[in-house]
Every structure is written in structure tokens, then in C-alpha cells.
Write a protein that binds this DNA or RNA. Structure first.
Lengths: 148, 148
DNA sequence: TTCGATGCAAATAGTTTGCATTCTA
DNA sequence: TAGAATGCAAACTATTTGCATCGAA
């Protein structure tokens, strides 16, 4: 479990901003790193390391860069159930996954504050759903089975 | 992701009850299976397959039996953060884990109903925290760092 | 005596690490 | 040109599967 002290989220809106942030920290901007950022920002959903590597890039480098970018706070990964970790540009987004059909619901900043408050009331924990999401049945899978 | 249709939880209070339940379903009760159940019921917390196998038993058999027992509904596994899956006798217990210190808070049946209601209000999902727990900071880790 | 369960070995998925080479600042 | 990043191969963790053998019912 490589925990590696992750900095506070650094929400860069574009690839260019992200690259500037890297430069500002004295970090190098290699071709692989730039391509990785472009793939991350172009994606409509969180992607696995394998998807991000595609045909061209080396998986080990992709993992190393993802770890680096995550330490800087530019990237986050989420575990949508079993399966590989999925990576996306840092954002306050949180998730719920249906363990029956795999549907993913994504929440904007603050939408789950009520849930957070309920958890705090129950046990005092300050929880988030950006890394480990809510897991359960989505409304349609939760509906009673139609009588055949 | 071997999903394997898991039956409704079958809450057997003791090893003997669990074994009867197996027999009632026409399932065989081997030495390995009995030992596995004894280890599960003796444990004060969820255990990994490796811990359950110990020195004597074969890991593959342990995994196969855990899967079987889970299908029957006698056993559940929970993912407390990264690391291996952890197994325990079926129960309505739910969990919260601290991602800073690893502390595990366990909830009795119904204790998280308020949280469940808040989630349902937010997105309609019917969630549970017995398989994928709540993850965040426990009260002590969440407290402001003491000024050195 | 039969079919399910076991042990061993090998395969798999996901991720990490060592090391010589390459490239950025 | 020094030190960081890369690619490749190998190691590692968690889990699954194939197969011949064993054992419970």
C-alpha cells in the first residue's frame, strides 16, 4: 500500500495549467508526462493505467507518473468496485457505483454534504467518496423484479 | 470479477449452526471446511484468506471454500481500503475505516440507516457499508495537528 | 462408489521495483 | 552535464484455474 503523502488537491482546469503547475514546482515535463496529462484531460471518465498507456506508452512509467502527479495533487484515483484503479484529473467530484449493473453516478462538489453530516453524526468520521465511492444498487436495479 | 450469485445472508450464530446449514443444503462438510469455519468464528475481526490458511491449509482451497460459503450466504468479505479482502461470518455489520491510521469502526444493524436515507435522498441509490466500507478520517486523525 | 473437495503447480491481473539508458532543465 | 524520467524485465501481491487424487455421503 504505497500511501505516499498526497498533497492537497490541485485543481488545474487544463493540460496547460497542469503543466505550468509542474514547472512551477521545478518538476520536469517529459513527452510521456505531457501525453499522459492530455489523455487524462481528454477522457470523459476515469481511466485505468492500462487504458492510459494504450499501445505506445510503458505501463511502469504510466504508474510512476500517475503516482507523481497524485503526490503533487493534480491527479486522483478512484476504486469503482473491484477491478483496476481509475485515474482522473483532480476534482472535488465524488462517486456512487451500482454493484449490480456497474452504473456510475458522479456528484458535484457539496452534493454529498448531507451524507457526510449523517456519517459524522453516526461515528465522527470525516468521509469522502472521491477515492472509495458509495456502493449499492442504483434506482433501477433496486426496483422490484418485474414479474415475468 | 467472479460475482457468483450470492444468496441472501444466512446468519448462523455458531460453527455448529453453520455446519448444519451446509448439511441441510446437501453440501459436504470436509475437514478443511470445518477448520475454516472455526477460524472464521473464532476471529475477533475479519481475516484475510492468507491468515485463514495459516501454515497448514492450502490457499487455493481456502479461496474456493470462502467463495462457496459466500454463495451460500454464510460468509461475507469486506474491502477495508487497499490490501487483501477480509472475511467474516455473515452479519448485518457495517464498517468505517480511517485512511490515515487504519482504525476500523464497526456498526451494528441499523446504525447507518440515517446515512442510507441521506444517500437515497441524494441519488436514489440503496447503499450498504458491509462490503465496501465508509472511508475517511477518524475523529482523532481528523483533529487539527497539534502545534509542535 | 461416485461426485465433490483437496493439494499442488501454474496462470492471471494489477502494480511495483531494479537498472542501464535517455532526455530535460 | 547532472539528475530526473524512461523502457524493459523481473518481482510481487492477491486471486483463480487445471488436473490428478482423495474422501464424504
Amino acid at each position: 500500500m504505497t500511501v505516499a503523502h498526497v498533497s492537497a488537491p490541485l485543481h488545474a482546469p487544463t493540460v496547460a495549467t497542469a503543466i505550468s503547475a509542474l514547472r512551477a514546482r521545478g518538476m520536469r515535463v517529459s513527452a510521456a508526462r505531457r501525453l499522459l496529462l492530455e489523455a487524462l484531460y481528454a477522457a470523459a471518465r476515469p481511466l485505468s493505467a492500462e487504458e492510459l498507456a494504450g499501445e505506445w506508452a510503458d505501463l511502469a512509467s504510466v504508474y510512476r507518473n500517475l503516482e507523481t502527479l497524485e503526490e503533487v495533487g493534480l491527479v486522483r484515483h478512484v476504486h469503482l468496485g473491484h477491478g483496476p484503479g481509475l485515474y482522473a484529473p483532480a476534482s472535488p467530484r465524488e462517486y456512487a457505483v451500482c454493484d449490480a449493473c456497474g452504473a456510475v453516478h458522479s456528484f458535484a462538489d457539496g452534493e454529498l454534504d448531507g451524507v457526510r453530516a449523517a456519517v459524522r453524526a453516526a461515528c465522527g468520521y470525516a468521509v469522502g467518496f472521491g477515492h472509495f465511492p458509495l456502493v449499492g444498487r442504483c434506482p433501477s436495479c433496486d426496483a422490484p423484479e418485474p414479474v415475468a
